Simulated assay, not measured.
Amino acid sequence: MFANSGNASGFALFEGTNITEASVPVDVIFVATGGSLYTTTPTPMGYRITNTDWYDTRNPVTLVDQPFYRSGSNTLNMVYTTADRGFFYVLGGEYNVALGRWMKARSQTNVQLSKTSTLAEIEGETATKLK
């Protein structure tokens, strides 16, 4: 479940179970940009990112470290959908397990569900369109 407040939310996957403020995720995606997400003073703090199809821990142009969401060029996010409308976010992309990297960047598709929606509405037609 993502926040429906307009503030940013997201998900991160970590290796192991001992997660601290210094832990770097294996994967991460953010929704929206609102709220207190990153500060440069007195010391840089924020939500850590990792190298993915959307984020880079080092700016690819300037080579400056940018380990947090909203720092440097790490400004991509999924589009926030209208709250309380039953949207399900679907991310399509192509990940190569052997290379350990995204070959085709993820893209967002929103599926509006109702109280009577079935799993097929997420896994069926939507999944086929993303391939």
Rank of each mutant, 00 (worst) to 15 (best):
A3M: 13
N4T: 09
N4I: 08
S5W: 11
G6A: 06
G6T: 02
A8F: 02
S9I: 04
G10H: 04
G10Q: 10
A12F: 02
L13C: 07
L13M: 07
F14M: 06
E15G: 08
G16V: 08
G16W: 08
G16Y: 09
T17P: 00
N18W: 13
I19A: 09
T20S: 13
A22F: 01
P25T: 07
D27S: 14
I29A: 15
I29E: 12
V31A: 01
A32D: 15
T33A: 11
G34D: 09
G35S: 05
L37S: 08
T41D: 08
T41K: 12
T41F: 03
T43I: 12
P44Y: 00
M45F: 09
I49A: 10
I49M: 09
I49S: 05
T50E: 02
N51L: 06
N51P: 11
T52E: 09
D53G: 09
D53S: 09
W54M: 06
D56R: 15
D56F: 15
N59P: 01
V61L: 14
V61T: 13
L63H: 10
L63M: 04
D65C: 01
P67H: 13
F68C: 05
F68V: 08
Y69H: 11
G72K: 01
S73N: 12
N74V: 07
L76F: 14
M78G: 13
T81A: 14
T82R: 05
T82V: 14
A83T: 02
D84F: 14
G86W: 12
F87R: 00
Y89L: 07
V90K: 12
G93V: 06
E94M: 06
E94Q: 13
Y95L: 05
Y95N: 05
N96V: 07
N96Y: 04
V97G: 00
L99Q: 12
K104R: 14
K104T: 13
R106Q: 14
R106P: 02
S107H: 13
Q108K: 06
V111S: 02
S114A: 06
S114R: 12
T116I: 07
T116E: 10
T116N: 11
T118F: 07
E123A: 15
G124L: 04
A127L: 12
T128A: 15
K129V: 09
K129T: 10
